[in-house]
């Protein structure tokens, strides 16, 4: 077995960190190691945390990790922040809210930039979750970027997805019925000490009334005040209840299959993009195609067909 994979499986933080970097950078060395660790992964439970900007996701993740540690679980955290579409750089600040976790060897935190992905995650999140899983972490928490309405990729990876809201969103909840409002396994209204909490909870409940029917699990609404560690125990109990529900109803295996499907698609997408846009044989060609499209001598569909035809030859 390769040395790096072996060290990952033994839980060595530096090996874990390096393999995640390989995956982020698309380093071919990473793929070989991922092949080795795959059979050892699949034991960790994956919690997804998504929600609007400033809802307190990072603070909530920190509090959940602390509670999980009290329950004897080891925890991996992957926290995603947006990459600038202009510079390609990123300011990753989720750790500011997680400082008290840093010295605990049972916790591994990794910050990630989206690097061009639009669904609220980074492409390397799939690998990072598998790596932390294989390294022996009992629970992996994935925190998305602060989302608007349509960034729903988290459901492709999480066993339980939490959507975090705050009081005062008011009628806006009614208008965002689609998208992130549909993906919640658990709704969390954080900052529950703030005015407007009753109304927000009531509006959520009435929204759930509309989608809930016989034989369908009703999505619970929980209140937390993460900064004071309030409501976190109940929240994790609810995660356990959801886990029991999906395991007994067969949905757990469905979700895992969907995760691997999403991962497979992502690997193929990345390799194809690299083949087309990074390989020298296409480089000059794409430039000239773009030129012709702009001059209206060609259309984008014909150009795409030409590129794919050459690729498949």
């Amino acid at each position: 077995m390769s040395e790096l994979a072996e060290r990952v499986l033994s839980g060595d933080p530096r090996a874990i960190a390096r393999l995640i970097s390989y995956s982020e950078d698309g380093d071919p060395r990473g793929a070989e190691e991922m092949k080795v660790i795959h059979p050892k992964a699949g034991n960790a439970y994956v919690i997804g945390v998504t929600g609007v900007m400033g809802a307190g996701k990072s603070t909530l993740v920190c509090e959940m990790a602390r509670e999980l540690r009290r329950r004897g679980k080891t925890v991996g955290i992957v926290a995603v922040d947006p990459t600038s579409p202009f510079s390609g750089g990123a300011l990753l600040g989720d750790r500011i809210r997680m400082n008290e976790l840093v010295s605990d060897e049972g916790i591994f935190i990794r910050s990630m930039g989206t690097r061009g992905m639009l669904g609220g995650l980074a492409s390397a999140v799939f690998d990072a979750v598998e790596i932390l899983d294989a390294s022996g972490k009992d629970v992996v928490i994935v925190e998305t970027v602060g989302v608007g309405q349509a960034e729903v990729d988290i459901i492709k990876i999480a066993d339980t997805t939490m959507v975090v809201l705050v009081p005062g969103l008011g009628d806006s909840i009614q208008t965002i019925k689609a998208g992130i409002m549909e993906i919640a396994d658990i709704f969390v209204v954080n900052k529950a000490d703030r005015p407007g909490i009753e109304r927000t909870v009531a509006e959520l409940e009435s929204l759930i009334d509309l989608s809930h029917g016989p034989g369908i699990r009703r999505v619970p609404v929980l209140q937390t005040t993460a900064k004071d560690s309030k409501g976190v125990t109940e929240l994790l109990d609810e995660v356990n209840a959801h886990e029991a529900y999906i395991r007994s109803s067969g949905r757990f295996d469905e979700r895992r299959k969907a995760r691997y499907q999403a991962e497979l698609v992502e690997i193929i997408r990345k390799r194809l993009m690299t083949l087309i846009f990074d390989e020298d044989k296409f480089k000059g060609r794409i430039e000239s195609l773009l030129e012709r499209i702009q001059q209206k001598e060609m259309d984008p569909y014909s150009a795409a067909e030409e590129i794919l035809a050459k690729l498949l030859k």
Binding site: T83, G89, A90, I96
Partner: peptide
């Protein structure tokens, strides 16, 4: 960040 780096700020 503006120079294209990923900056982790703690």
């Amino acid at each position: 960040r503006d120079a294209g780096m990923e900056v982790i700020y703690t």
